[in-house]
Design a protein around this nucleic acid. Structure first.
Lengths: 192, 192
DNA sequence: GTCTATAGGTGGATAGAC
DNA sequence: GTCTATCCACCTATAGAC
């Protein structure tokens, strides 16, 4: 389980850094920001994450593995595909309510400026999401609950782009309701 | 026509800065980057745009007014709503082909870190886009060429989120084809 | 593990000569 | 308008004491 066996302090650093990246971007925060909110010095942070690149990699890796776990948990729960998809969308909704955007959506924007390795992790995150979504869409269509003409993976990419974009716009207008409205339409479009 | 009556040098500065923001973000480039590609010094840039905030505001204002002009031109052209919508999507496609993302999509991610005034300009950009899209959607539905159940403005927001998100994802995978695939589905969904 | 201290670099910005 | 020179704040990162 990568991203888990770190020390407790390292986890708390990641918690603070994650929030900072989701609101200000990877190029929009510094070790000083983390140090201040944690009440420690910058040097102390470098002990846990020598370079900002190390911190960034750990950040995406943890975010990704957590998402994987949550997605797996959703599929194990009772209910059909539409319920599972709604639960998935609710994960994003929580982010919107908190005035953040998806960690990986943010990093995708900063793309070419990121330290080595982060873009690869990013792609893995999106790949995993698309794959999971495609699986849910497939199940739903097989059960006659979803209706869409194209391949599940293609539809998954539409959904992912829509959710990431909706988070960005909702935050820009300081209105999580915009996210709900848009994501609600996406689900409705799929109904058989 | 705001954003136009500047000197020619200022326009060239904006050209370079625009490309930099669309690839690296507002927090991901510096006056030094512009100076280098233009073959001038940083001090010279400060003559045209005293602060980075001034540059940023001019950037969004120009981008917005240019988009307004292009949107108006599209509506004046021959063809029905679906054609107009496709032309609009093609504007985004050009961005994707160039390995960029939408200037305002990028700035939306950086949101709270932007200099004063830029977020307001950003919202104006998105508002104008939604309004234009809603108008095209309305026309198309009135003509029996589009079919969608919700209010045109609501559908417009779905489309805008989808396009902005698709640009982000296409660039992350270095594959403009992802943008075409996603935007193509969006258009197909609307067909009556 | 966390601290103080500091190095080395880059950022935005200004003054003043040309 | 563009230049040189310079300032100061901030950033990432390291050394070494505790």
């Amino acid at each position: 389980m990568p991203g888990q066996p770190r020390t407790e302090t390292a986890q708390r650093i990641l918690d603070v850094a994650e929030k900072l990246v989701q609101t200000r971007g990877f190029n929009g925060f510094s070790y000083a920001d983390i140090a201040e909110t944690m009440g420690v010095t910058r040097a102390s942070l470098h002990y846990h994450f020598p370079g900002k690149g190390d911190l960034g990699l750990a950040l995406v890796a943890r975010y990704r593995s957590r998402f994987d776990l949550e997605c797996a948990a959703i599929r194990r729960r009772n209910g059909e595909a539409p319920r599972h998809l709604q639960d998935y969308i609710d994960l994003y909704h929580q982010v919107a309510l908190d005035g953040r955007v998806c960690l990986c959506g943010m990093l995708a924007a900063e793309g070419p400026t990121l330290p080595p390795g982060m873009q690869e992790e990013l792609r893995r995150f999106f790949d995993a999401n698309e794959f999971w979504l495609a699986s849910v869409l497939q199940s739903g269509r097989d059960a006659g609950l979803f209706a869409f003409p194209e391949a599940p993976l293609e539809r998954a990419r539409v959904l992912l782009a829509l959710l990431e974009g909706a988070l960005l716009l909702a935050r820009t207008f300081g209105d999580a309701g915009r996210f709900s409205a848009v994501s609600g339409r996406a689900l409705a479009d799929l109904e058989a």
